[in-house]
């Protein structure tokens, strides 16, 4: 049976939108050039960090949920402009520690902190700490993408608006810049008024990063940012982390050791609320100093 040429043409026309969509999807897979951070401010990958480069300092820091220990006696310094990964088995306190840095743990009743945890020389758990300022300087990206049920534009503009920026032109500029920085601009620039919830999971997570960037933070905390995403979206987020490195100090909690090895400059290994080992990522993964670390990274437990 032969199809008439008309029919064939029609069929091709029917197929074309599909093809186009497919090709645009493949375009998605190849991320465009991402704006690199200032190359002059590359972190120095020394085993010890020079004191003037320390941005987060934790000294004998302990955190308790009631009588239960969250983390205990954590002493570690985090270098400005670097990417620091925190790995460890479930329930080891890595998220707890991360959430202490911008005091998100305040939401949980009956908690208590001891020791020193300072961001930029300022004790986080000081009574006089301005939480608004702290959280603006220490942004956070969560495990599950959690954009607000607002438009893409309003999501990104949420932080600037909090800071009192009302001028439309100013907001427009910030939104565009942040979406570009989060490598989302090309995908959403045509419809910024679309609901953020209509985006895919990976796009939502990048939107959350853009939203955090809009606050112009010094530090970005990432709490397993890729655990709810597929490998493709994960790759894009990792690229993004690499691009943001230098401009921002990034602390990332991850279950995925390959990810930690790929993206981070330094890695901390937590176990049972204690910091077991902390050092340069390449060293930690190739030549761990502690037995527990070796067991964990080789998959013998955890």
């Amino acid at each position: 049976m032969l199809l008439s040429s008309d029919k064939i043409q029609k069929k091709q026309q029917l197929l074309r939108p599909n093809m186009e969509r497919l090709s645009s999807q493949t375009a998605d897979r190849q991320p465009g050039p991402i704006r690199l951070a200032d190359p002059n401010r590359k972190p120095e990958l020394q085993q010890t960090i020079r004191p003037e480069r320390v941005i987060i300092r934790s000294k004998d820091f302990s955190f308790y949920y009631g009588s239960k220990i969250g983390v205990e006696k954590i002493t570690m310094d985090i270098e400005a402009g670097s990417v620091t990964a925190i790995i460890g088995p479930s329930g080891c306190g890595k998220s707890t520690f991360l959430r202490c840095i911008n005091r998100m743990n305040d939401l949980i009743p009956n908690t208590r902190a001891e020791g020193l945890l300072a961001v930029g020389g300022q004790n986080v758990y000081d009574k006089n700490t301005n939480l608004v300022n702290l959280r603006q300087q220490v942004g956070m990206v969560f495990q599950k993408p959690n954009p607000f049920a607002k438009s893409i534009y309003d999501n990104v503009a949420y932080g600037p608006r909090l800071q009192g920026i009302r001028r439309r032109s100013e907001l427009d500029a910030i939104v565009e810049q942040c979406l570009r920085d989060a490598a989302l601009w090309e995908e959403v620039k045509d419809d910024l008024s679309k609901s953020a919830l209509a985006l895919s999971g990976g796009q939502q997570q990048r939107l959350c990063i853009a939203r955090t960037l809009a606050n112009k933070p010094k530090i970005i905390l990432m709490d397993e940012p890729c655990s709810a995403l597929d490998p493709l979206a994960t790759a894009r987020i990792e690229d993004l982390i690499a691009a943001l490195k230098g401009t921002y100090t990034i602390v990332i909690v991850t279950h995925n050791m390959q990810q930690a090895a790929r993206v981070s400059d330094r890695t901390a290994f937590f176990c049972l609320g204690k910091l077991i080992e902390y050092g340069r990522t390449d060293v930690l993964f190739t030549n761990p100093a502690k037995k527990e670390t070796e067991d964990y990274i080789t998959g013998r437990f955890g």
């Binding site: 911008n102 998100m104 939401l107 942004g139 939203r211 955090t212």
Partner: peptide, 15 residues
């Protein structure tokens, strides 16, 4: 309302 919504807003420095 999911806690993560509120956290997102609080983490951006909202009261």
């Amino acid at each position: 309302v999911p806690q993560s919504y509120k956290e997102a807003s609080l983490a951006l420095g909202a009261g």
